[in-house]
Nucleic acid binder design. Sequence first.
DNA 1: GACATTTGACCGTG
DNA 2: CACGGTCAAATGTC
Length: 337
Amino acid sequence: MADTESVCLSDEQQGVAVREVAQVYELIKTQQPLLLVHQQPQQLAHGLLNHAMRALNVALSVMNQPHASSSSAAAAAAAGHHFPVMTMIKAESTPANSPAADVSDNHVAGKARRSSPAKRRRINCEDKSSWVYHTVVPHEDGYQWRKYGEKKIQGTHFTRSYFRCTYRDDRGCQATKQIQQEDKNDPPMFQVTYSNEHTCTTTRLINNTNNNPAALHSLTANPNGHPDDDSDDTILTKMIKQEQQAAWLPSPPPDLTTISNNFDETPGLHVSQEVPPCSSNSSAISHYADEFDHHQMGQPLETTVMEEALGLGADLDDPYFYDPNLLLIYENLMNCY
DNA sequence: GACATTTGACCGTG
DNA sequence: CACGGTCAAATGTC
């Protein structure tokens, strides 16, 4: 990360970041043995990776916004929203951020289309269901999106991309999403605006990025054509690739709240039902599961854990620690100590 | 060939 | 009239 040394966090932010990373460390550490005996190790691995990515998002988001209080993330948690986003800036609709997601018009071929103009761009009247987030991984939300437009917005350096639920036509899902890159940091921060709740509740199994590589590329390849921008893709591209690898999204939305809740509350782990030790018959699995539960319930994240998490050396051989984002975030943390 | 993205045009709102 | 959201033909990818 280019700004590694320039990142300077407040104590509170630092604590948030450390806590998140430490949680991931603990989770991976405790669950790793399960992979050896789990009947579906790949599934478990995906779950772990998802946890890791989310927590890292939290930490990275905090680091990328030194001015932002962690309370905003806590607000997101309190709001119980469904997105793997780390900083919710607003929980209200604003004219600039709310897509007019009325897609119920009849489709008319050719130039005769748009025969029901009154249905477009209804922003202020009744669309109250929009949420604005800032995140470094705008695509990781577990839903499948289809890009339907891209626009250069005045006053911004990057284009805004418009997505709607892939199942809009099939299931009438009205959910839409806008992604606006905000800066050229490494990784860059994105503003993501969601509008309308998903009604296609069965679609949350596959990460959209898995199916929409071109959409990802369109966001990372600097559609504005700024000559300097090409070099900015590396980190985000890596992260996106990892998102693609971890495409399996095992949990319902509330698990995100679980992670975010730790901002303000107990340092204890609530990591969850999302990566269950599995309901298999194996006694070995049960054994590990019991150990896991006991570990999770009883152990707050104390200094020793953080130090261990920051120690790096101990578990670098852990296959999950190949993640460059882990290294990045560790480097950030180490530089702050 | 099916499906997704790109892109320029269309159109409502302020 | 400028801006921003959406449409749909063209294009790309598998």
